[in-house]
Design a protein around this nucleic acid. Structure first.
Lengths: 229, 229
DNA sequence: TTCATAGTTCGACCGTAACCGAAGCATTCG
DNA sequence: CGAATGCTTCGGTTACGGTCGAACTATGAA
């Protein structure tokens, strides 16, 4: 008995509706303050404070205190991955209320998963990078090849800065909608922000939806997918 | 709000200690009866019945009624993956009570993850298969190459039978101890049972530990890893 | 200094859900 | 046919945890 870690503890942590709403809100990748999370979850500040300290203690959150504000974000990509995994289970077996509403549709097409691009366009990009030899899988480790590095640099990503960081460069993350992987890690984050910088795409405020401009989507196809998709 | 599936519902399902114990017990891959699961969780049959029906309804379990017995097993590999993911979070951030006891050590070396080989030896095998060109990753899809198929057939796996099944042949599954992938899917299951059949390894009753015989481990190194590790 | 805002702590309330005893079905065995 | 076993349903108890109001601390602005 009792072999392995205490899984119930952290599952229960995620299992409360208020906390789950907060975590889902944090899947946008942005750090949010306690009050913002409170309103997001539809509870008062006192209750939120209690929830947040519990989740922090449980290692689900990263906390940054700034002046009289306290910013919360997901602790790391693994937390985001587990959340996506849970969404996968819930979407399929859950209530079967996968009635693909308009919001759902855009979520499936392109959304932000914690801090990187997910959804159909995210998995497409991931596939293309593999096919063009920019990424190489060996074991679980996902490595950027030399040509991949060159491509990223040319795309406007400051590779030197990324490499100097301690965060893993490339990671896979499973997609609840497409049931395929997309690119996480610091590179995944950098690519998404570069796309925003270029004006290709815009995150919808307070939502995980990522909307590409017409020109941006065209550019995405020609430069990122490059005819491989 | 309320975009995406109802994550709290199923997280709460996993979040109860009794249910979590049952699910952990089912990670051995064996189907267990309701009473077995009840004793495993330390509760009475009545309570267990209630829990089990809830988890079934939530899509976490597969149920097989046989005579006056009712056998429960995990619904699919995705459920197992999420459980492993939760273990990863709990192990690291949880209680930090990752005091590597003797049981923990053997769990890390070789264990069964739902129905396939995990732990150090599992990830080693996965790496070797990639390196030798038996497996190929493209996107999320993990494909068995022609040589891979030949190897498996030679190893004694009935590939025709596997291919005729509807279950996916190859899948990745993240490892909470090694933080790397190992091979899931119907092929992963087949390989493990073939190893048991050959007498290389034996599952410890009621535990997830997989013990290799001295000869079995030797064979494993020469035939599976083949000098690549 | 005084006021306002962000967050926390305390105490009390209340609902949900886990739990078991007992009784009720269903299946198999003698 | 009983008797035994495996599982479920029902009813009632209990406890844990989410919730908010009110009071408190800390940071920043007027």
């Amino acid at each position: 008995m009792k072999e392995g870690p205490d899984i119930a503890r952290i599952a229960a942590l995620i299992g409360d509706p208020a906390r789950a709403n907060m975590l889902t809100a944090l899947m946008t990748g942005k750090a949010l303050t306690a009050t913002e999370l409170a309103t997001e979850a539809g509870i008062t500040g006192q209750t939120a404070s209690s929830h947040l300290s519990k989740m922090d203690e449980g290692g689900l959150l990263r906390v940054l205190k700034q002046g009289r504000h306290k910013y919360f974000s997901l602790a790391n990509d693994d937390v985001a991955s587990v959340l996506e995994g849970l969404m996968g289970l819930a979407a399929r077996s859950g209530h079967l209320r996968t009635r693909t509403g308009p919001k759902e549709a855009s979520l499936r097409k392109a959304r932000v998963c914690y801090n990187h691009l997910a959804g159909d366009m995210g998995t497409r990009m991931f596939d293309s990078f593999l096919e063009r030899g920019f990424l190489k899988v060996s074991g679980d480790a996902l490595d950027l090849t030399a040509q991949g590095g060159a491509f990223m640099q040319g795309f406007g990503v400051d590779m030197a800065a990324l490499r100097s960081g301690k965060a893993p460069l490339c990671k896979e993350c499973l997609d609840w909608s497409a049931r395929r992987s997309h690119l996480a890690g610091s590179l995944g984050r950098a690519i998404l922000s570069r796309m925003e910088e270029l004006g290709w795409a815009k995150r919808t405020q307070g939502s995980r939806v990522v909307t590409f401009s017409r020109a941006g989507e065209q550019k995405f196809r020609s430069e990122i997918l490059a005819g491989t998709g």
